[in-house]
């Protein structure tokens, strides 16, 4: 996370240099799933033996973010948005839980249309995301030799970048010269293909059996290309072609903008 600190410092430095033309915003909101999906891996067997699809997007959840914008013109800005989305999903019939986190860096451009103290705006940006998610599930594993076993497993999916597009429209109200309020409709179109899956917990009938799985056996790598040798059953590394998970969402966010700019022309 060193690069986040470096980036933040660079941003603060630039805000000092260009302080006259910079504004900073802080926002929060809730996102609902859109362009939902049901990847094959989440076609989970229900505890009663039936099958059910699970429609979800990891984009659903609480969103917190900050934006720093440079004013090119009174009505045209460019800058960077950084936000964090936390998603807690439950697929109850399959006894599965998902917890996803995603940091997004969004270089963006924003346009304003002003009328008195009110203004309308629209923005568009490119998302570069760093994400991870945890999947926990409980299963009854039926085996002819050993009978029914109660399995509990936690997998963590990490690594790789996620790309997408963010766009928003909203209204802003100038409360006073120091602060503006805004409400916006925020749209994310994104997916994420992790590079690695690691088994973090493995319990059989309530007893920790993680030690039974070798260190290398706990790790599954996801690649964009695999040779036939790597795909053969004799291959030593666990490698699979990458799977993408949905992160698209639509939601409302509420925020405040602190203009560091002294604008004369409104």
């Amino acid at each position: 996370m060193k690069w986040i600190i470096v980036l933040s410092l660079a941003l603060w430095y630039s805000s000092i240099c260009f302080g006259q033309k910079v504004s900073i915003s802080i926002e929060g909101g809730y996102q609902l799933k859109s362009a939902l999906s049901s990847p094959r891996t989440t076609w989970e067997l229900n505890s009663d033996g039936s099958n059910e699809i699970y429609k979800f997007s990891f984009g659903e959840g609480i969103l917190l973010g900050t934006t720093i914008m440079y004013h090119l013109k009174p009505n045209w800005q460019i800058g960077l948005k950084a936000n964090y989305i936390l998603s807690n999903l439950e697929n109850a019939p399959a006894s599965s839980d998902y917890k996803s986190e995603m940091f997004r860096f969004i270089p963006q451009t924003k346009f304003y249309w002003r009328k008195g103290k009110w203004s309308a705006f629209g923005s568009i940006g490119l998302i570069v995301g760093r994400g991870k998610f945890k999947q926990s599930y409980q299963r009854f594993d039926v085996n002819t030799s050993s009978g029914i076993k109660d399995i509990y497993r936690v997998n963590e999916y990490t690594g790789g970048f996620s790309f997408g597009v963010n766009n928003s429209i909203g209204i802003e109200y100038e409360a006073n010269s120091k602060i503006n309020w805004y409400l916006m409709l925020d749209n994310y179109t994104q997916s994420y293909g992790p590079r690695q899956r690691e088994i973090l917990q493995y319990e059989v009938d309530g007893i920790d059996r993680l030690e039974d799985i070798s260190e290398s056996g706990r790790i599954q790598k996801y690649e964009d290309f695999l040779t036939w040798e790597e795909l053969s059953i004799t291959a030593t590394d666990n490698k699979e072609i990458r799977i993408f998970y949905p992160y698209s969402s639509l939601g409302l966010s509420l925020g405040i903008t602190i203009p560091l700019i002294k604008e004369s022309k409104r």
């Binding site: 997916s191 072609i241 990458r242």
Partner: peptide, 26 residues
């Protein structure tokens, strides 16, 4: 394309070193 997914387990492809195998279909 945007917010892509993958299709099945990939399709026959060759990498930049000339190795043949399966490649991601995004």
């Amino acid at each position: 394309k945007l917010a892509t997914a993958k299709k099945w387990d990939g399709k026959p492809a060759t990498d930049q070193f000339g190795n043949s195998g399966l490649g991601l279909i995004n």
